[in-house]
Design a protein around this nucleic acid. Sequence first.
DNA 1: CATTTCGTTCAGTTGTTATTGAACAAACTA
DNA 2: TAGTTTGTTCAATAACAACTGAACGAAATG
Lengths: 154, 154
Amino acid sequence: MNDLDVTRDDFIEKIGLIAQAEGLPRIAGRIFGLLVFEGRLINFSDLATRLQVSRGSISSSIRLLEERGLVKRTTRPGERQEYFQLAADPYVSLLEGARRRTRRARDDIRDSLNALPENQADIRKRLGAYAEFYDAIDDGLASAVSRLTSRKDP
Amino acid sequence: MNDLDVTRDDFIEKIGLIAQAEGLPRIAGRIFGLLVFEGRLINFSDLATRLQVSRGSISSSIRLLEERGLVKRTTRPGERQEYFQLAADPYVSLLEGARRRTRRARDDIRDSLNALPENQADIRKRLGAYAEFYDAIDDGLASAVSRLTSRKDP
DNA sequence: CATTTCGTTCAGTTGTTATTGAACAAACTA
DNA sequence: TAGTTTGTTCAATAACAACTGAACGAAATG
């Protein structure tokens, strides 16, 4: 195993851990890492052998990654295996997912706020500040999205 | 149990679930929710009884919340019990924590990038884009922080 | 001094999610 | 046709984190 292999495997493991910290299965992160590193089509069984995991795990993690818009599935004419690669804008998809979760939290809090009687001004104020926190995050992530998209548009 | 109690308990449970989705123990989220809702000092045993959980759980979750700068512990002269309340700027602390994790991920990726030989321009480019994704998040969260802090400074 | 209260620690339990591996259907191959 | 390969599903297991509750030391109280 040469230097490049070591660097790659090290990278893949790191991304697995990052994914795990963000609530994704570690294997999903490792697939993502491999696809980022290689930057080309990789077929199903290669994923299983290179990451040393069962086909079942590849199947379910790939499904997750597809649902989140991070990975695309392709087939080649005449070939039976399915190939996978990074989606066009995986990072934007990740940010959009984070924004959705953020806004959902904000809405939950707003619902509680709206259920409060008018005379509970102090509680309303605190829940309002909490909701604004999520609004601030949402805006921040929105500006991250535009930064990523503007970079390549022109 | 009146309307306000229902709204409060509902809110507390919601925050517990949000916390859980963000990788914190549910009980930590419920404590946070209770403190946001009440907006005043609450003592240790009240936390345990009102949230119907063991003292051990309160102890460990409070420790987590303190470590993250979300909750402050206080004592009152002549009283033996310890009191807890929201920290001054809990939302800023949350954002700073998120920024730290973001930058750590970016640094991990940069380390891999730097371990690559110069002639791997394509791989370097892809890892670079990945690292920039985290930079964009960090900047977005930074602007969320300034939005939250500027709001009350003047 | 004995007793009570307070918060922490830690071993054990519970509950949840990730992962495997066998079974399966579909699509090819010989 | 029988046999292979491919990806999915699902039941069982492994791995992990949350949570409990008993034990504990410290500090107060009587």
